[in-house]
Structure formats: structure tokens, C-alpha cells
Design a protein around this nucleic acid. Structure first.
Lengths: 284, 284
DNA sequence: CTCAGCTATACGCTCCAGTCATGGATGTGG
DNA sequence: CCACATCCATGACTGGAGCGTATAGCTGAG
């Protein structure tokens, strides 16, 4: 014999209502069911919980203590149900380095207008998949293909490749550059965040040497002029820095911006977010 | 559809054991039952709680939060069951004015020896029945008949009547007195505790006048010599006071000492306490 | 004493939780 | 590459728990 929530609800209702009969009405069941439920609870606990007379029903000493516990249990269960339902009223979008660049304000504004019930939160994560795996985000922005079978992803738009050079670099005077212009330069790769741009670099024009830095601040090194960097447009937009200029690389392939999520467990609002972002990248 | 404890136990077991199959073994049910239970919980909450693969089972973000709540709920239920069972390991004996007088130490000693698992607590209550009604005591010492139908009582022994007189009263020089010796004196009655001794007085020899005092300290008035008092032996034993002496009243009927309890809900150890006290009063 | 109102219980029924068996999915090792 | 092992989901079935109805038993009130 085991304690069941139904029995605890019954106990609380009886004490609150004062009689078994009124408790039955409050619970929407017959008086017989209430009587049996409480009897089974008392049998399960091996203790008399209520003193019944034909006039009133009063809790025993044990009954009072058990009642307090029962209220706590039922309160906790309510919290649990609320907590489970609260997943729908919040969408946490993870980003590792760059969020959505120049689209971020518009995205937040239009999301709030279209989905006032679902709070949008942008959260910084170590990587798109790590954010999902650790349940820190419901949907993650990622700029490379997702090979993990547990996750699914969709391309929401394309971003230009920019190269980052020191402000006093000769290239900084040009409106745009080509990959060939970067030959012979040293490409700066940030190993810390796991972000490398080398594979996006066309192989035939890849810099002869690449310098691997484990830097906290990628831009500081760029500003020294010792290296150049390649990055997506959103990153450039999000990390302006005196001494560093960004220039579009005309012949570099654009970067696909993706949203990733748990394949078999997408957030209820995921599809809406994907569609809104796609529209923004399309220019709508 | 409602959340049930069985479902929560299931969720916790799955996460702890790692697979549905092992959880089923741990819960002592079939794997199919575990699968169904969790499915029904997810349906009730409207949320996916676990991600299943053929290799491992990992909680969803919501699943993690719900899991934490579930553990709390189950912990509370355990507390509730423990609390209900704990009634048996404690016997609270209430007393209003005098406890058991000179028998108190022996009672405590012999109870501890005979019932080491049941902790004996002596608690001061406003009145025997009030202590029971407020669930402050499980068993109350009372020295008058209990007329409340809700309670039952048993006589455990008899105590001599003592009269309390000032130390410089002529009666203080006698080893014992008779009711007739108190004729003409003023009998002090304590209305505050509801204790009156007049009805124990043989009607024909009852003091001519009685002075009703609403005193905090009965003994202080006795010591002034203005009044005399009548009390049970246990009270005299429990409240010695310089300036007041107690003398047995030979021809006063002894007082019946009773234990009272809720008629339809006696403490499991009540009978044992009654028997032990009876033996002590008998002189065993 | 009768009556009104309450709880406990007997009886029949329903429906759900469980078991068994099987199917589908996935990772593994030959 | 395929057979296998392992795991979860699901369909069919069953026993029992729990419900409602009706009624008995109890207890104050009038």
C-alpha cells in the first residue's frame, strides 16, 4: 500500500471544507470515494488522521502534522507542473561569439511584437552544441555545419566574409579586398573558442603560414598588424575596435548562418524563430 | 490527466539508473510499465522530459528542472510518512498543575527501561482536556472526573488530601488534621486554573465561607495565614514553599488520579503508561 | 423519540495500470 | 555489409483498484 497524491488532496480538502461531504463536492467526487480515500491513507500510514463525529471532523495530533506535510507536497507538485509549463514562455537563443550582428535589434523587436507571451533571451554559450547539450539554450546560432546526429539545424541566411586588418595596413585603405590580396599574410586563428576560419579560406589562396594564438582578445593581435583575420559580418558588427578595420572579401564564399536545436525535441517556438530570422536575412 | 507519484518515482528511477530497463528492475515492474508511466507523465505535463536513444537516456532542459522538483516532492512524501510513523516513538504526558508528585522520577526511570523506543515527555498544559484537544499531549493527568464525551479516562491511583496552612498557624504543629479542624477557616480556591476543592469537602463539614481569589501564586496567599488550602499530595510534593506547611487531612476522601485520552484515538503506548502508573501508585 | 445529517460499507461496474509479446531504431562486431 | 544485441514504444489483454449508487449505522438537535 502506498501513499498517493489523490489521498493527500482528499485529506486537505476534508480539513479545509470541514466535512467529508463538502470535501467530496469540492473534489467533484462522491462522498463514498472521499471516505475510502482517507481510509486507505490512514491504512497506508498506520495512523488515525481524523476524528469523525456526526457534527464535525477534527484532525488528530498526527493528522495535523501530516496535514502540514501534505500541503507542502501538493504545493511542490503545483510548482512542478508550473515549471514544466514555463518552458513555453521563454526562448533562450545561444550564441558562441557573434549573435545576429546587425539583425539583433530588429529580431528582438519583431519577436517581442509577434510573440509577446514568449520571452526571448540571448545567452552566451561556449559553443552552439555545448549550449544545447547543457540545456543552457533552446536554439543556438552556429556558422558551420552541425555534424552531431543529436542535433538538427537550418540555414537562416548568408553573411559576407570580412577580413580584419590593422587600421594602418595598406589594405585598410581599400573598400574591399580579394583573397589573393591576403596571400603571404599570417592568418590569426582563435583556438580558444574552437573557431577557425582556415577551412573557409579557398585552398589555393590560403596564407602560406598561419599563426596559432591562444588569445583572450583576438582583436588586440589584429591591431598590432602582425596578423590578419577572417570573420563573418556579424562578428565584425558586434566587435568594433579602434585600430582594426573590416573589409569585405569579394571572392570569399559567404558564411551560412544556421540555427541548431535538439533533433527530437525542438522548442515550441523554434520554427517561428527560424522563419523570422530567415525573413530578416532576406531583407524583409 | 493528473500527475501521480508513481510517475515521478519512475522519472527519478530512469535518470538514476540510466535506462528504462534498469529503472524497471529497480522499481520491480516491467519495462513496458516504465515506458507507459513516463509517457503518461510527459502527456500530463505536455512536455518531453527525456531524450531516448538506444544507447542512453538524457533529460531535456525541462526534464532537468522537473526532475529536481520531483526529487523534492518524493522527499517530502518520505518525510510525511516518517512523521506519521513518528507518533509511536514519543509519548507526551500532559499535566496541568501537579504531575505525578513523588512518583515522577520512578515513572520516568521505569518507563525509559521498559520502553526505550518511546520517548516520554512531560508537558505542562492549561488543562488536561485542553492539552488533548490542542494535540499538545497524548495522555493527560487529571484529578477530577472527565465529563467530555470525546475523552476517556482511567483511575491509576489515589492520593491523600493535604491541607496547606501558614507555618505559624496552630494547625502546623499537628501531625495531621481533620476537616472539623478547618471549620471557620477561609478556604482558598484558585479559579484561574479552574481547580476547586470545595466539592471534595463533605457537605456537612464544608467551611462556612470561602474566599475566591484569582491569584497567580496560590501559595503566597496561604503563607500570609489569611486562608487555608486543600490540595492533592502530588501538588504538595511538587510545590514546597517556606512559610507553608502541608498536613494530611485524615477524614477527607482521597483524590482519584486519572489519566485521560481521546476516546477513539488512544496513543499506542497509552495502556502501558496506565499500567505502569497503577503499579507505582499500588506501591510496586 | 424522531429526524436530519454525517460517515462507513456492500455491490456492481468501469477503466486504467500492468504484463506479455512484438516491432522499430540504433550502435556493434565479425 | 549484415547479423546481432540492446533498448524503447506499442498493441492486445487482464486483474484489480477506485468509483458511484444505495443503504446501514451513528449521533446530536429539536
Amino acid at each position: 500500500m502506498d501513499v498517493e497524491l489523490r489521498q493527500l488532496r482528499c485529506l486537505v480538502a476534508i480539513v479545509d471544507e470541514g466535512t467529508f461531504t463538502d470535501a467530496a463536492i469540492a473534489l467533484g467526487v462522491s462522498q463514498a470515494a472521499v471516505s475510502r480515500s482517507l481510509a486507505s491513507l490512514e491504512r497506508a500510514l498506520g495512523v488515525r488522521l481524523l476524528r469523525r463525529t456526526s457534527r464535525e471532523v477534527t484532525p488528530t495530533g498526527t493528522g495535523l502534522r501530516v496535514l502540514a506535510h501534505a500541503r507542502r507536497v501538493l504545493g511542490e507538485v503545483d510548482d512542478l507542473v508550473r515549471e514544466a509549463a514555463s518552458g513555453h514562455d521563454r526562448l533562450r537563443m545561444g550564441y558562441a561569439w557573434a549573435a545576429l550582428g546587425r539583425h539583433t535589434p530588429a529580431f528582438q523587436r519583431r519577436w517581442a511584437a509577434a510573440h509577446p507571451a514568449t520571452d526571448l533571451q540571448l545567452v552566451r554559450v561556449n559553443s552552439a552544441t555545448a549550449g544545447l547539450a547543457e540545456a543552457a539554450s533552446d536554439l543556438s546560432v552556429v556558422r558551420r555545419p552541425v555534424d552531431d546526429r543529436r542535433f538538427d539545424s537550418a540555414i537562416v541566411g548568408l553573411e559576407r566574409r570580412l577580413c580584419a586588418v590593422a587600421a594602418d595596413d595598406p589594405l585598410a585603405r581599400r573598400r574591399a579586398v580579394r583573397l589573393a590580396d591576403l596571400s603571404g599574410r599570417t592568418l590569426l586563428v582563435d583556438r580558444r573558442t574552437g573557431t577557425t576560419t582556415t577551412e573557409l579560406w579557398p585552398p589555393d589562396s590560403r596564407p602560406a603560414t598561419e599563426e596559432i594564438h591562444d588569445v583572450d582578445d583576438w582583436l588586440t593581435v589584429i591591431a598590432t598588424g602582425r596578423c590578419v583575420g577572417m570573420t563573418a559580418e556579424a562578428t565584425a558588427h558586434q566587435y568594433p575596435r579602434p585600430g582594426v578595420v573590416y573589409r569585405p572579401v569579394r571572392d570569399a564564399e559567404p558564411v551560412a548562418v544556421r540555427l541548431a536545436w535538439w533533433r527530437d525535441d525542438p522548442h515550441p517556438a523554434a520554427q517561428a524563430a527560424i522563419e523570422l530570422l530567415t525573413a530578416l536575412y532576406r531583407g524583409d
